[in-house]
């Protein structure tokens, strides 16, 4: 079994934290993993993505082929659309529906959402609002991971939940609990 996941967002939105949590869970589960990240210039508010590949067998390429991704997890709706050519026909897009507009020519909201919702398998939520309503503004990315958890399949939601405890352990029990709550919020939102 294999899962090819594209993580997308804008520099500073926390997609590498999502990658770290999934990566930790995969390592503990004994899966093969490759995760190509973007460092450097584009982290300054530009578009960022990470190719995350999980498999029970050996993985060769650090990059995912076009048309082969099983899942796009995006912190931003236009950034989710940027990678649809990488998605396979059965693939899911799990994304925040809240646009991040730091460019003057950002597309019209309606056109953007129409194109996104035209895809067969989409789960979209305004995760920033959910995070604020629940007093966890810094955990929007973990809410998104919760939303995506059912579609990752090669790892169970429980394995990801346990990984959150390990990844945030150094920041104290409160932060771990808050992030696990955030994860559950996302998980339950897409039932």
């Amino acid at each position: 079994m294999k899962k090819d996941i594209i993580l997308a967002g804008v520099g500073g939105q926390g997609i590498l934290t999502i990658a770290t949590i999934i990566g930790d869970a995969a390592a503990v589960a004994g899966l093969s993993l490759k995760q190509a990240e973007v460092h450097g210039m584009s982290q300054r508010g530009g578009d960022v993505q990470s190719n995350l590949r999980l498999s029970t067998d050996e993985i060769y390429s650090d990059l995912i082929k076009e048309g082969a991704a099983d899942l796009i997890i995006s912190m931003e709706p236009m950034e989710a659309l940027r990678y649809v050519s990488y998605l396979n026909g059965e693939g899911w897009v799990v994304t925040s529906s809240h646009p991040f507009k730091n460019i003057p020519n950002y597309p019209e909201d309606e056109a953007l959402m129409n194109e996104l919702n035209g895809l067969p398998h989409v789960a979209a939520l305004p995760i920033d609002d959910v995070a604020k309503e629940n007093n966890m503004p810094k955990s929007a990315n973990v809410i998104l991971l919760g939303m995506a958890a059912r579609y990752i399949e090669i790892l169970t939601p429980e394995q990801l939940r346990e990984s959150i405890a390990r990844v945030f352990a150094s920041k104290g029990e409160k932060i771990v609990e808050m992030n696990q709550q955030a994860f559950d919020l996302g998980l339950n939102a897409v039932k």
Binding site: V10, G11, M41, S42, Q43, R44, G45, G46, D47, G67, M78, E79, L81, R82, V84, S85, L87, N88, G89, G91, N102, I103, N105, Y106, P107, E108, A111, L112, E115, L119
Partner: peptide
């Protein structure tokens, strides 16, 4: 499976 999306603009760093 899917063509490149229409409503996507470059987002350069700043």
């Amino acid at each position: 499976a899917f063509a490149t999306a229409q409503n996507v603009m470059p987002r350069p760093p700043a």
